[in-house]
């Protein structure tokens, strides 16, 4: 296992959505991951997104940097805190789950999990 936390600049998330509770997407299974999206803690800056990664695949830090950095550049995720529990998902799957979790969080709890 590798455990690390990365922080990337990102546009501030929509303020009304920051009231929403957490959203979860995906499952912790082989080649898959779960992503939890929550409003950041007290220390969270509105123009940064914090991502806490727990992955069973060791030695892919650069790939994580690229995939997570791109997510933060594409989405207005400033002020959010994300937790990823990963069991060796490919970069494409990681990018998909991040986008799905973000969409689910924007839609609110009534929308249910994908």
């Amino acid at each position: 296992m590798e455990h690390f936390t990365l922080v990337f600049p990102s546009r501030p998330a929509p303020p009304q959505a920051l009231q929403a509770a957490a959203a979860l997407c995906g499952v912790v299974g082989s080649g898959n991951l779960e992503v939890l999206v929550e409003p950041g803690g007290a220390s969270a800056a509105q123009d940064c997104c914090q991502l806490e990664v727990h992955t069973a695949a060791e030695g892919f830090r650069e790939t994580w940097q690229a995939v997570l950095g791109e997510f933060c550049a594409l989405h207005a995720a400033g002020g959010l805190s994300l937790l990823l529990n990963d069991v060796g998902a490919t970069p494409a799957v990681v990018a998909l789950r991040l986008a799905q979790a973000y969409e689910a969080w924007l839609a609110g709890p009534a929308a249910g999990a994908p």
Binding site: M1, A22, V27, V28, L36, H54, A56, L83, N85
Partner: peptide
């Protein structure tokens, strides 16, 4: 929630689920 991830799996350094 974070608090409900299995501490026993963490002890073995294995993936946990929320």
């Amino acid at each position: 929630q974070r608090a409900w991830q299995s501490p026993h799996l963490a002890l073995l350094d294995l993936p946990q689920a929320l």
